[in-house]
């Protein structure tokens, strides 16, 4: 297996606090990689640096063999990184279809003057992309809500829309920040199934989750962060037995 993403010595400081401290992370092509850790461990900060949303104070990021350290988020997105956010970043007043269509941005090729005069070329290409988006919506069981406004949807469906938007960019690396947060148990199972299916279809996924039970069953590999440092990085079965991980999670009662 080759490495799709390699982060070396990533560091981020907030004032006196080192939120992410010399973290190494390798995500292999075609794998489903879990990232776990207690609240405030630095998981979100780490993926924010990797995806260009946050500044990098130290270290390097290599993506598809190229050094992408410090590249702007939109450049990384054009290179095939897509992500969802821990707190919803959906376009609330817009339809599900438009939200997900926005995710196809980097694949839409028409340029000036076509965009300014809605030429047949635009019409054709838009229709093609809408068909693709509908396929994604069907896959996530969102097709019935395609024309509803996002703000009308219940919480769980909105999480799925955020996933759909990220998938719409057909990413080489899909980064998900707590996609199951706040979902009722049945929806968590559905989500787990979706992630497994995506992986089978060849996606590479880096997923942050608090639900360790879910991650243990679906991941190929897991990285555990605690207080900004990596305390374990291995297959789920090994991570589960790691004394340091057990210690970091001691007293935590997860609904796993």
């Amino acid at each position: 297996m080759t490495a799709l993403l390699e982060a070396r010595g990533l560091t981020r400081r907030w004032g006196g606090l080192t939120a992410v401290d010399e973290v190494d992370l390798t995500v292999h092509r075609g794998s489903l990689h879990g990232l776990i850790g207690p609240n405030g461990a630095g998981k979100t900060t780490l993926v924010n640096m990797i995806t260009g949303v946050d500044r990098i104070d130290g270290g390097r990021v290599v993506f598809q063999g190229a050094d992408v350290t410090g590249l702007a988020a939109h450049r990384l997105a054009s290179r095939g990184m897509a992500r969802s956010f821990q707190t919803s970043q959906l376009f609330e007043d817009e339809s599900v279809l438009d939200n997900v269509m926005a995710g196809r941005h980097r694949h839409i090729g028409y340029r000036f003057p076509h965009t300014f005069f809605y030429t047949p070329k635009v019409s054709r290409e838009e229709r093609r992309h809408r068909t693709d988006v509908h396929a994604i919506l069907r896959e996530l069981d969102l097709a019935v809500d395609a024309h509803r406004q996002v703000s009308e949807l219940p919480y769980g469906r909105r999480r799925l829309v955020e996933l759909a938007r990220a998938m719409a960019s057909e990413p080489t690396l899909l980064v998900l920040d707590e996609p199951a947060a706040g979902l009722p148990g049945s929806d968590v199972d559905v989500l787990g199934e979706v992630l497994r299916r995506l992986r089978r279809n060849g996606y590479t996924i880096l997923v942050i989750e608090h639900n360790i039970g879910l991650l243990m069953t679906i991941c190929d590999r897991m990285t555990v962060l605690s207080e900004g440092r990596v305390i374990a990085d291995d297959e789920p079965a090994v991570v589960r037995e790691s004394p340091r991980v057990i210690e970091a999670y001691l007293g935590r009662t997860d609904d796993a």
């Binding site: 702007a72 988020a73 897509a82 956010f85 376009f91 926005a102 839409i108 005069f117 938007r165 960019s169």
Partner: peptide, 30 residues
């Protein structure tokens, strides 16, 4: 005509995305 065309196409969605969530907009490549 220009506004209506843009609104229904890639540029309009890029405007919309940037307006609603600049962070999300950048993360989809806008």
């Amino acid at each position: 005509a220009v506004i209506a065309s843009m609104r229904r196409s890639k540029i309009g969605r890029a405007f919309m995305a940037t307006r609603e969530s600049p962070m999300a907009a950048r993360s989809i490549g806008v």
